[in-house]
Amino acid sequence: MKKAIVIFFLAVFGYFMAITFLSPEFEADRNRNGVKDFYLEKTVSDLKTANTVTAIVVNFRGFDTLGEVTVLFLAATALGSILFKKRHHIGERTVLYPASTIVGSGAKLIFPAIILLGAYVFIHGHLTPGGGFQGGTIIATGFLLMLISYRNFSISHNILSVIESLAGILFVVFGFMGLIYGGSFLENFMGTGILNDLFSGGVIPVIYILVGFKVAAELTGLIYTILHEKG
């Protein structure tokens, strides 16, 4: 009975969604006020950032990114608060027994390369696809590989939270420096350099690197917390 009601509701909902999104009028004159062109043009001329998405994420809509980083921070904190039982003892195991020799030594061998890959992704956030979030996630995944392959691979929670806090503070501080030197919060106050150089885009790569560190620390802490959870 309940299923029938739900399916009826979904059918009505789906019908309205379909007439909304599938009709040719949808997005008919989206480019009317030249949003796309504006962003593309300003990214090249003012910000000298090759990746327009990065420019939007970090500069045009940088405030969103600050909020987003806060959401991740909150999620990591909330995870700790919700699952909180006792303090973790140092040296407590994350997995029951270590992985086989092959996986273990493979993980060791590939781990520096994964970290380097993450670093590459967030250092080149303004030139190639990717950036702070992706790079941070990749680094956290590298730590995940080590954590599930070894029994006694431990990360200091304090170091993680120091990295996380410092990165977050520096992000906000760069925002305030924009306010002081440029005139508005998060404004790009540094010299922008030449398009497609590594050192270009002014404050954008700096902020994205900070985001990368922060996300990496947050997600690693999150994984560490949840791996220690014993049902």
Binding site: S105, K108, L109, F111, P112, I115, L116, A119, I123, M146
Partner: peptide, 15 residues
């Protein structure tokens, strides 16, 4: 960057 990473992964990279 690589110097930094390889410094921190000395005990791991035992190949």
């Amino acid at each position: 960057v690589t110097a930094l990473i390889s410094f921190f992964t000395i005990p791991l990279f035992t190949c």
